[in-house]
Nucleic acid binder design. Structure first.
Length: 830
RNA sequence: GCCGGAAUGGCGGAACUGGCAGACGCGCGAGACUCAAAAUCUCGUGGUGCUUAGCACCGUGUGGGUUCGACCCCCUCUUCCGGCACCA
């Protein structure tokens, strides 16, 4: 008898799939299409099972959809630009390209070893000039549409390295290579994409995605875009005629409680306000200190609030009272107007700041219910809506009414108006680094900024550069790259030396897959039109905001250019959890990885895949357990032996029986369990991709078959064959190699890859009897077995007839009865 | 700090729409097979108590609430995880 040898079985079928071009898919308008996609991986060094989870889930999805009759496109490629390749270059002296492409070779080898069903003809790498050429092309179209522009913006700067640092390179506010050197904020001119133009559309689109996207991702995106309605209010600066400060507030109803105006350090008026101050020197020093911080939002938000008074006052347009103007580190230039009115009693951040600097905290809103607030007892801000007090003519109004009325009054008097703002900021795409797409513009002394003409694309990265991580960016140091004739006048020009954020690469790659070799356009709208949009997108929850928002933005822009017909790229989104070991995410740096190749060599790819899907529902984090892997290997062995044992006797028979007439009890039990399994597994796949419970159901089915052994006594070969075939088919999306082998053992020669998903038959799955629970006051007091579909009255009668229930009811009165047919009877007694 | 999640036996997890908590797997215990081992197979396995063929009570992070009935809904708190715009 043959043993199950995963290595041999897997190599055999991988070769056959390759020879048959089994996963290559071409547009076919006569067939329903399905675009199954996993998030573009960054090809880092060692591949571990944490990486494999995403692709295992995606492959099961793709294989299942193929079995359901869809024309499935399932591509794979590489997010090949980025910081780690430059770090490798610095540390090991390897060129980033060499390091990256080496990783790609290894990554692909693992993909083959795991039997992932990719159409490799569509493979792309973002560092390939044939790919990034189209990044540049899209950038130029953005420029034409005023969607790309330059402005000054803050970056992290390490004075010792003399270079810009990524947020990741800032550790505890200091440079990662100089742990004693605090990072400074520096302003430099950078390129931005005007994503805010589409803020409303990106927000509204979320409503449409509600069916196919996880609720939490929709919520996070909605909060990220952060639409808020409020008012812009102008405060005159006392003693500086014609100068005023505008603030944005969502709580104009609290304006009588304002005790200061606070500006961001970068606010354009700051210098003018401190100009005449006797404390000017001290103020300048404070401003410098505020610059000694990283530009990470997280660092800004957790930093202790500090500030200083400018010495000037602003006039509250409602009360005509003077309010001191301060500068505070917690006010962001990027949001609203870069200035706020501080209402300490009703905003926690204002409260923290004002109590620290002993500014008054007047109460102007009282809660609608509960104890009223008192000045002396105020321990924290109360930001709830309520009723206005001490607010002049508005006293007595509710917050809602006051917001409407005060906004209208501000408008009527000309010092304010209603306004909607977004938290969303424009997307900074400039990077002062080598390993990325060069931004295709040239600066000419005469003509200024000149776009590189389309026919000169791609602007290629120079090969010979020195990458040190110190000083200005490698491209800026490469004279042959920088010095270029102006395309307009032919005079001396300088190339832009910034490269693009790698998020640009991953914002449209899913379209390039659909027409990967086009050298005239990023993709042909007709070729892409058949497959687009992506039907199922799968990736980590870590990408819930940035990548998914940028990809949606790009798709809207491409739609407006007429290249695609929809603005939403991903109809359905699935976010898988992380793989943990020892409670931490698997990562090489933490030394807790389980290597993908090691896994395949020791247990086989099918076992690795099965375990990855079995250990937890795919959207949750899973803890890796080597012992549980053994359990999955045992299960596959068990199935193999089962089919091996019966294969010979059933292979020449056709599977299935027409109906249950004449079926033995054993046959009925087997067919019932099998078809119930088909129904439930199909349901798990269709609704939420719960492979873990689907696998548990297959295990139950195998257990049931074992209970019914020996099958030769009491079950016809056609029935046995049907049971084993359906089991094999259901296993195929998850452990495809062994499924192919079993399919062959059952007498098929065509290859399971072309087989259909099994059809569930209700008449086979139907139960004849069910167990119904009898409760008294919600506690279980007995169980009865009854025919399916028994009516309520009969159920109660049966329950009352139970001797045990009868005894317990003695002397008590039934006040209510609740009946759930086929499930339970609950008697409420007194 | 802000936004979003999660918490169920010794472990991973199951429980569809508010209706038998612990499916399935791991681990552990007992047994069969074997000279022996591995593999395989069978049985048992949340806790406590008792008058132990069974029965009762407790039990889904904390404390409260709604309900005939709550892992599930509402409020509170705790801990852990993800994101925070230059990691990808």
């Amino acid at each position: 008898m043959a043993e199950y040898d995963p290595q041999a079985v897997e190599a055999k079928w991988q070769k056959i799939w390759e020879e048959q071009h089994a996963f290559e898919a071409d547009a076919d308008p006569d067939r329903p299409k399905y675009y199954s996609l996993e998030m573009l991986p960054y090809p880092s060094g060692t591949l571990h099972m944490g990486h494999m989870r995403n692709y295992t889930i995606g492959d099961a999805v793709a294989r299942y959809r193929r079995m359901r009759g869809f024309n499935v496109v399932h591509p794979m490629g590489w997010d090949a630009f980025g910081l780690p390749a430059e770090n490798a270059a610095i540390q090991r002296g390897i060129h980033p390209r060499e390091w990256t492409l080496g990783n790609v070779v290894e990554f692909k080898r693992v993909c083959f070893r795991f039997g992932f069903s990719y159409d490799w003809r569509r493979e792309i790498a973002t560092c390939d000039p044939e790919y990034y050429k189209w990044n540049q092309w899209i950038f130029l179209r953005m420029l034409e549409r005023d969607l790309a522009y330059r402005k000054k913006s803050r970056v992290n700067w390490c004075p010792k390295c003399g270079t810009v640092l990524a947020n990741e390179q800032v550790v505890d506010g200091c440079c990662w290579r100089h742990e004693d050197t605090p990072v400074e904020a520096r302003e430099i001119e950078q390129w931005f994409f005007r994503i805010t133009r589409y803020a409303d559309e990106l927000l509204n689109g979320l409503d449409v995605l509600g069916d196919g996207w996880p609720e939490r991702v929709i919520t996070m995106q909605r909060n990220w875009i952060g639409k808020s309605r409020g008012a812009r209010v102008r405060f005159e600066v006392a003693g500086l005629t014609g100068k005023s400060i505008e603030v944005f507030t969502t709580r104009i109803d609290t304006i009588y409680g304002a005790s200061a105006i606070i500006l961001a350090a970068g606010h354009p008026l700051v210098q003018e306000l401190i100009a005449g101050s006797p404390n000017r020197a001290a103020a300048e020093k404070q401003l410098d200190t505020m610059k000694q911080t990283s530009v990470k939002d997280e660092d800004v938000a957790t930093a202790e609030k500090v500030g200083f008074a400018t010495g000037r006052d602003a006039v509250n347009p409602f009360t005509k009272e003077k309010l001191p103007i301060w500068v505070g580190n917690f006010v962001l230039m990027e949001y609203g107007t870069g200035a706020i009115m501080a209402v300490p009693a009703h905003d926690q951040r204002d409260f923290d700041f004002c109590t620290k600097y002993r500014l008054p905290t007047p109460i102007v809103i009282q809660p609608l219910e509960g104890a009223p607030l008192t000045d002396t007892a105020l321990k924290q801000a109360s930001s709830e809506y309520g009723k206005l007090v001490n607010s002049g003519p508005y006293t007595g109004l509710t917050s809602e009414d006051a917001i409407t009325k005060m906004t209208a009054d501000a408008d009527a008097h000309g010092f304010g108006k209603g306004e909607t703002t977004f938290r969303l900021r424009d997307w900074g795409v400039s990077r002062q680094r080598y390993w990325g797409t060069p931004i295709p513009v040239i600066y000419c002394e005469r003509d200024g900024m000149v776009p590189v003409p389309d026919d000169q694309l791609p602007v290629r990265l120079p090969e010979k550069v020195s990458i040190t991580g110190m000083g200005q960016s490698p491209l800026a140091n490469t004279a042959e790259f920088v010095n270029i004739k102006c395309p307009k006048c032919g005079g001396p020009g300088r190339r832009e030396t910034d490269t693009m954020d790698t998020f640009v690469d991953s914002s449209w790659y899913f379209l390039r897959y659909l027409d990967p070799h086009n050298d005239k356009m990023p993709f042909d709208p007709v070729a892409a039109g058949y497959w687009f949009p992506v039907d199922q997108y799968i990736g980590g929850i870590t990408h819930a905001i940035l990548h998914l928002l940028y990809a949606r933005f790009f798709t809207i822009v491409l739609r407006d250019m007429g290249l695609v017909s929809t603005g939403e790229p991903f109809t359905r989104l699935f976010c898988q959890g992380m793989v943990l070991k020892g409670g931490m995410a698997m990562s090489k740096s933490k030394g807790n990885v389980v290597g993908a190749m090691e896994m395949a060599d020791k247990y086989g790819a099918d076992t690795g895949r099965l375990y990855t899907l079995f250990a937890a529902p795919p959207e949750k984090d899973m803890e890796w357990s080597e012992q549980s892997v053994e359990g999955c290997a045992r299960f596959l062995n068990r199935v193999f032996r089962l089919v091996e044992h019966h294969g010979g006797e059933v292979r020449q028979h056709a599977a299935g029986v027409g109906d249950l007439a004449g079926a033995s009890d054993k046959e009925k039990i087997l067919l019932r369990k099998t078809h119930q399994t088909v129904r439930r597994v199909t349901h798990d796949f269709e609704t939420r991709w719960h492979f873990n419970s689907a696998i548990a159901l297959l295990m139950e089915l195998v257990n049931e078959i074992h209970v019914q052994e020996p099958l030769a006594e009491g079950a016809r070969p056609t029935v046995i064959k049907e049971v084993l075939e359906l089991l094999t088919l259901m296993l195929a999306p998850m452990s495809p190699h062994i499924a192919e082998e079993l399919w062959e053992m059952l007498g098929h020669s065509g290859g399971l890859i072309r087989a259909s998903w099994p059809q569930f038959r209700a008449e086979f799955a139907a139960e004849e009897q069910v167990e119904v629970v009898i409760q008294m006051n919600g506690k279980i007091r007995g169980k009865i077995t009854v025919d399916v579909g028994l009516d309520e009255d009969s159920l109660v009668a049966r329950a009352l007839a139970e001797p045990r229930i009868k005894g317990m009811l003695d002397g008590q009165k039934i006040v209510k009865r609740i009946v759930v047919p086929d499930k339970l009877v609950n008697l409420v007694v007194k």
